[in-house]
Amino acid sequence: MRARSEAASLLSARRSRKAMLFGTWYVAEHGLRTMSSYVTTIITGSIFNPLIYLFALGIGIGSYIDANAGGIGQQGVSYLTFVGPALLASAGLTAAFEETTYVVMGGFRWSRIFWAMNATPLRGSQIANGVLLAAGFRIVFTVVAFWLFLFAFGAAPSPWAPLAIPAAILSALAFGAVMMAIACRIEDDDSWFSIIYRLVIAPMFLFSGTFFPVERYPLGLRWIAWISPLWHGSQLGRVASYGLEQPAWLVMVHLGYLVALLAIGMRLSHTGFERRLSK
């Protein structure tokens, strides 16, 4: 063995200092390295997913609606312009789902890598932050790629349209934080995720004003949209993308709801990670 002072000289006497400052990044770095093993899946998904949706909804349903109803909503924009920001947000949410549910279950149960991380100066809260940060990189990549397709298809007419990107990213992160808070509390059964997917994600996708305005739903179903980060993200995206008319207070509600969801999700993830790791 080499002289035993080398690491000691690189690590300060308080060895947690660097980890305290950059711990979240170290965990995210691990997440990105892991993602690089399925980078092809991520990239092809990020290209084909928007293409399929944009063709099907823009050229398929969209041309039908536009020809028969002269567009959609009170402002009568083309169907693709209407649906685009919602598809953008939902692409972000899907990426968030993958990177916060199975990754968290794997870290605790399968590879048990979170226990290994926690044996170093890293804290549970930093591990949670790092997981979301790594998910954030994938979300940004997915959303930006999707938006470029929207733009190319002429579905982002407003000069403010690029602001739909941060709106979609914010809703995906808020959703991811909540999913992570749930995932870190699931002890043993991964079929929970398919149940969540069928009972929460799929209805959310269908009833969040993704394909037509929420006002068209009966009152009894609108609450699904109200609690759904997808709806809030989609509406923000629409304001940016084609200038959907929304009162300023409602825009603030959309933003505030997503920020609150993100904060609550992270808070619950922190306590969940810390508690599980310190048992």
Partner: peptide
């Protein structure tokens, strides 16, 4: 630990490097 918790997504040498990163 009693139960191996090596990082199965990355290779042998990278396991050492990535783990070292956690210490800063």
């Amino acid at each position: 630990p009693q139960q191996d918790n090596l990082d199965t997504d990355i290779r042998v040498r990278d396991n050492l490097i990535v783990y070292g990163r956690y210490f800063g």
